[in-house]
């Protein structure tokens, strides 16, 4: 895991190929970001547990894949958004190959901030990702850093 002064974006993605594509798509991001990758739910939980909320290590955005071995995206989403959890206000964008209505419904019911189906075509994906990043990092207000 890398540390930079750029805002951290956590990508929970088990597939190396997909993460490689993700990285490549973000390389032309209009907003400079620091990508942190977690290979599964365990790694993500560990990272969030150790990162300082006040520091730049704390992600401004989480991209979450749903289908992963071990703790999958659904379980992780529920954990992050659990009542009383200090990660509750993290902005979670579900980014998955799934387009199943059941998954969409599940994620929003568990307070996902957005649900995006990965486009099949890389060029489309790149365009989409850059828009998503631009929106969350430049348009949307950040949640306050202090916990109530």
């Amino acid at each position: 895991m890398t540390r930079t002064a750029n805002p951290t974006v956590l990508v929970v993605e088990d597939s190396d190929d997909d993460f490689y594509a993700f990285e490549r798509a973000c390389s032309r991001s209009p907003v400079p970001i620091a990508l942190v990758r977690a290979r599964d739910g365990f790694e993500a939980r560990k990272y969030l547990g150790s990162a300082d909320h006040a520091s730049s290590q704390w992600p401004v955005l989480v991209f979450l894949d749903l289908n992963m071995p071990g703790i999958d995206g659904r379980a992780l989403l529920q954990e992050i958004k659990a009542e009383g959890s200090d990660s509750k206000r993290l902005r979670v964008v579900v980014y998955t190959t799934s387009d199943s209505p059941t998954d969409v419904e599940f994620c929003y019911s568990n307070y996902a901030n957005a649900f995006h189906t990965k486009p099949r075509d890389f060029r489309e994906m790149r365009a989409d990702l850059n828009e998503i990043l631009a929106y969350w990092l430049t348009k949307a207000d950040e949640p306050p850093g202090d916990l109530p």
């Binding site: 597939s15 190929d17 490689y20 594509a21 190959t97 099949r120 075509d121 890389f122």
Partner: peptide, 13 residues
């Protein structure tokens, strides 16, 4: 679909 997506990406890269 998963490997297919990757293959498709690498062809593009």
């Amino acid at each position: 679909r998963e490997p297919l997506r990757a293959i498709s990406n690498y062809a593009l890269f």
